[in-house]
């Protein structure tokens, strides 16, 4: 359960999010909005990358203002460009990166790496240089690096924008199969058409909050 109460975010006196209050308990939540509408700032609040100027953000038992570190482990975050979130030169090293911070024993780290690589068909690339993977494989690697941390929520910030159609389908399928609660920011409306709830952002406020069948046509109207 995610709860926001009167959350406002300001950068240099500019209000990016304006008094947002809501609670989210659905398994699949889509976020849409024009560039600069506040949607990225909204999702960044949910794992503590962004701190609210005022108001409270709670995810399950964690208060974003107090439990930043725990919140980051509870809420995984996958970014648009996998090249910017793969930080190690070899595939297995990159997946191990987050796990090292959890201070897990070595065989547990190995087990989790094996498991996640097998899940995404990347097993043969375990010792492969990460920059030689294809765009879709890189995004799957980025997702793997987040999933091995066993988060309860996973946020995707435009996960398919930079991918071709085949890889987009692969990543879309990978997201659909997740047991976790998924929050996806996307310009690709097909990606969130089957979701439980869609939030439409406009000028730092939520202009529409409904099921996709209502929210998506509304968003199309707004952008026309």
């Amino acid at each position: 359960m995610i709860t926001l109460e009167n959350v406002t975010v300001e950068f240099d006196q500019r209000r990016v999010l304006d008094d947002i209050s809501l609670s989210l308990s659905e398994k699949r939540i889509g976020i849409v909005g024009a560039n600069g509408s506040g949607k990225s700032t909204f999702v960044r609040l949910l794992n503590g990358l962004q701190v609210a100027s005022s108001g409270t953000v709670r995810v399950d038992d964690f208060d974003a203002a107090k439990d930043g570190r725990k919140l980051r482990r509870h809420v995984g975050f996958v970014f648009q460009n996998p090249d910017n979130q793969i930080v190690y030169p070899v595939v297995e090293e990159d997946i191990a990166f987050g796990l090292k911070a959890l201070k897990l024993p070595k065989d547990e780290i190995d087990r989790r790496i094996d498991e996640v690589l097998a899940r995404y068909g990347l097993s043969e690339f375990r010792n492969h240089p990460s920059h030689l993977l294809s765009g879709g494989q890189k995004q799957l690697l980025a997702i793997s690096g987040v999933l091995v941390m066993a988060p309860r929520y996973v946020i995707f910030d435009e996960p398919t924008t930079l991918l071709d159609l085949r890889n987009r389908n692969r990543v879309e399928r990978a997201i659909a199969e997740l047991d976790q609660t998924v929050i996806t920011v996307s310009h690709d409306l097909d990606l969130i058409a089957g979701y439980d709830r869609v939030l439409v952002f406009e000028n730092g406020r939520i202009a529409c909050d409904d099921v996709p069948a209502i929210a998506i046509p509304r968003y199309r109207e707004m952008m026309a």
Binding site: L49, R69, R72, F79, N81, D83, Q85, F97, A101, M149
Partner: peptide, 17 residues
């Protein structure tokens, strides 16, 4: 710009030594 995104991604993966 890349560095800013990379730093975000590292923080999001709770690198906190």
């Amino acid at each position: 710009k890349t560095a800013d995104d990379v730093a975000d991604a590292i923080d999001a993966r709770s690198f906190d030594p």
